[in-house]
Design a binder for these strands. Sequence first.
DNA 1: TATATTTAAGACAATTAAGTCTTTAATTAA
DNA 2: TTAATTAAAGACTTAATTGTCTTAAATATA
Lengths: 146, 146
Amino acid sequence: MLLSKSTEYGIRATLYLTSLKQEGYVSIRDISDELDISFHFLTKIFQKLTQADLLQSFRGPRGGVALARPADQITLLDLVTAIDGPALFTECVLGLPGCGERKPCPLHEAWGPERDNLKALFENATLASMAADLETFDLRLKILHL
Amino acid sequence: MLLSKSTEYGIRATLYLTSLKQEGYVSIRDISDELDISFHFLTKIFQKLTQADLLQSFRGPRGGVALARPADQITLLDLVTAIDGPALFTECVLGLPGCGERKPCPLHEAWGPERDNLKALFENATLASMAADLETFDLRLKILHL
DNA sequence: TATATTTAAGACAATTAAGTCTTTAATTAA
DNA sequence: TTAATTAAAGACTTAATTGTCTTAAATATA
Ligand code: FES
Ligand code: FES
């Protein structure tokens, strides 16, 4: 699995939040209901994103969460690293400590560039661009019961 | 994390086994000692690889494990799928069921090709080519205590 | 045959990830 | 001021992964 469940949920939920284009705060309950994600679990994930200054939160009636900056200034890489940490983009694919040129593992030469591609993929995907695609191509963020 | 610990160990151990170029069987104990991997855990991983017909095993004195086919006919993709299953190369990166063109998620267009690259990377890496690199470039398979 | 060697198999424990529940704190509105 | 709403925090449970240990089965060799 490339991303943890937490990160999968975090991306889907933040993307949905973005797509609402709502002025004020959106309640976590609304988001968790809409995407069929456990409310309390999602709350914890959003707490991480709030602590990483990617989201703002507000308690009480009319409270909820909102993007902390414009949607074109938050990337999926921001979300992934805030939730799962940077390991995917820095660590040895074989789990050996100290990935680098000095004493590389047999996969380093092939994995290094691939890892950079992957990082670029997440870095180039802003919440704004993703939300635009979402509308344009009618993409899905939730499981479908067909 | 891209690969599970089991797969990381499985790749390192099989690569080491290949590099020995030994005629008969190599005991699992020798491999686990050399690479600092738990013997019993590695035994289980090798059992999966044996059941997938990538390795052959033999019990009793002078027993152990050996490649089931020539090293240029076993790829890292074979190892990964035998241990972790094919999910990494088939499933939606956001965890939504039924990754495909019919109702793609917002990352599908970018992730699809990237996933194919990743698959090609593992598919093009045979045990033979990796073992050759290992010699040529003095690469490492075990943690170093510098 | 008896003993030592080695993988197979499965029970078991420890750790981490995932998910649930309760209580607290902040805020609004009646 | 009181009650309702909502996120924060943390205890707790469950499930999956990782790791350890014991016993059984197969095999070679003395
Ligand atoms: S050392 Fe293994 S990927 Fe860099
Ligand atoms: S539907 Fe998400 S990657 Fe294909």
